[in-house]
């Protein structure tokens, strides 16, 4: 047990552990929607598009969460505005907005002096630098995300499974889609310090994709994805501590390893189930 408890004598490890558990869990929940709706490109783009907001906050000493949230929501609105009248295809619009926002963010950060170190932290995360107040904000964001998902679960399910039915039932589909995008943006901001912008998409989709291999109902997938996200977050953090590697990549590689293992096992089982 000592190898589990020893690292926790450091307060930065305690805070880091809480942060990855939290991020793993809410990314699993929102990531489930990202996976079943096939929005992984949008998720990745949104993660990158928060950079200018974070960068401005960073350079001016403002609030990173608020800056990122504004940039994220702005990008989400921009993408849905571009695709409104089907003048531009969705993936094209996403690509345009995402690259522009990311470039803008890097341009802003490059004006700061300690440019490369800071950029590395924003891109790849620095979970050991999480402060108590960061943890409180992340916790608040987690509660908001889970609360809204619980409140609109059945509407989100119908909209994700069959948008046509949602329309015949007169659901406000555009509004609900926007709410879901906002939840995605909030999740991304909350996860920023744990895994960073560049690796965010892995936290969103890999645990959810792993869960989808194992269960057959959406809420089961959500619960399992949250558990897998939290478990891999903690495992990755310990690996980073003992192997002396960066925490973000360690967490992501742990989720990938679990996905590969589950994929291999389910494929083997399927092959055995098929009669020759």
């Amino acid at each position: 047990m000592d190898f589990l408890l020893d690292p926790l004598t450091f307060t930065f490890m305690q805070r880091g552990l809480l942060a990855v558990l939290l991020v793993g869990a809410i990314s699993g929940v929102i990531g489930t929607f990202v996976v079943v709706r096939g929005m992984s490109f949008l998720g990745d783009a949104l993660a990158h598009a928060i950079l200018p907001g974070v960068a401005i906050a960073y350079v001016t000493g403002g609030d990173l969460f608020l800056g990122g949230l504004i940039a994220g929501l702005g990008s989400a609105l921009g993408i849905s505005w571009l695709t409104r009248h089907e003048a531009v295809k969705e993936d094209t619009a996403i690509g345009i907005v995402f690259a522009a926002m990311f470039a803008l963010g890097i341009a802003i950060i490059s004006t700061a002096r300690s440019y490369s170190v800071d950029l590395t932290h924003i891109l790849f995360g620095n979970v050991l630098g999480v402060s108590d107040s960061d943890l409180i904000i992340m916790g608040g964001m987690g509660i908001v995300v889970l609360g809204v998902v619980l409140l609109f679960y059945k509407e989100f399910l119908v909209l994700s499974f069959d948008a046509g039915l949602a329309r015949t039932l007169k659901l406000p589909g555009d509004l609900l889609n926007l709410v879901l995008l906002a939840l995605l943006a909030v999740t991304i901001i909350a996860s920023l310090q744990a895994v960073g912008i560049a690796l965010m998409i892995a936290m969103l989709i890999t645990p959810a994709a792993t869960a989808q291999l194992l269960v057959r109902r959406l809420h089961h997938m959500m619960i399992l994805a949250a558990a897998i996200g939290a478990l891999c977050g903690a495992t990755g953090l310990y690996l980073s501590f003992y192997l002396n590697i960066a925490s973000g990549p360690a967490v992501v590689l742990t989720t990938t390893a679990l996905f590969v293992a589950v994929f291999a096992i389910t494929r083997l089982r399927e092959r055995r189930a098929v009669p020759r």
Partner: peptide, 21 residues
């Protein structure tokens, strides 16, 4: 139906969608 048949829903879940309202 423009539906992803791998979507994680059971037969009961699908029918329940009709009762949304």
């Amino acid at each position: 139906e423009a539906i992803d048949w791998r979507f994680p829903v059971s037969v009961r879940d699908v029918v329940m969608m009709g009762r949304l309202r």
